[in-house]
């Protein structure tokens, strides 16, 4: 009887490890094949699990896709939080954003490219992440506005302009920076140009 809790916790650890394995395999597959080319059967095969095992951990393929996008979002949020100061300047917010983007470039570009065909929960995760960036930009913009450093642009539009700009380069990364990181190649210039646009 005494051994039971230990067995239970070992089971739960194994369960979590399997879930993690499936998720990591999904992330690797999405990076190379995109969401459309990632099937639950292939994820099962890549991890050496039975196909049915996938559904013990994720109710549906959509649930798995949403979890993959959530994982990318969490990882990027953590990175942003780690880089952040209490009252960052606009320059600090976009530099932190570029760093997080550079580290997740391939996966994030996949999410963007396939956003319109992703299940609603996955698309909502992407949107929540963008809202978090926009929120930081809006707060930094308000501080800069008070200090007279930026022009009288609507803060939401200014933030959307930055998000649209980076998204465009990420979605077309094969054209702007064939075979290399588009953030490494163009990021610094985009940041300088956007700051020049919004600054007084």
């Amino acid at each position: 009887m005494i051994a039971l809790p230990a067995v239970a916790s070992q089971r739960s650890r194994q369960r979590e490890a399997t879930r993690r394995q499936l998720l990591e395999a999904g992330l690797r597959m999405v990076a190379t094949e995109g969401f459309a080319g990632t099937s639950t059967a292939a994820i099962a095969q890549a991890t050496g699990k039975a196909h049915g095992t996938v559904f013990l951990h994720f109710r549906t393929r959509d649930a798995l896709v949403a979890e993959i996008v959530a994982e990318i979002g969490r990882s990027m949020s953590d990175r942003l939080a780690a880089l952040e100061t209490a009252t960052p300047t606009l320059r600090e917010v976009i530099d932190a954003h570029l760093t997080a983007l550079a580290e997740h470039e391939v996966l994030y570009a996949r999410v963007l490219a396939e956003a319109s065909t992703l299940p609603p929960a996955a698309r909502a995760r992407l949107f929540a992440l963008q809202s978090a960036i926009a929120s930081r930009l809006r707060a930094a913009h308000a501080r800069a506005r008070t200090a007279g450093e930026v022009r009288a642009l609507d803060a939401v539009v200014a933030a959307n302009l930055w998000i649209a700009l980076t998204n465009h380069y990420l979605m077309n990364r094969d054209l702007f920076a064939p075979g290399e990181s588009v953030v490494a190649k163009c990021g610094a210039d985009l940041a300088a140009q956007w700051l020049a646009l919004v600054s007084t």
Partner: peptide, 22 residues
């Protein structure tokens, strides 16, 4: 979502439901 990204309220509600339900 409306405040931070200026999207339509109806779309924002749908997005919020999809997010919460997962």
């Amino acid at each position: 979502f409306v405040r931070e990204q200026g999207i339509a309220l109806t779309a924002a509600r749908e997005m919020a439901r999809a997010l919460l339900d997962s």
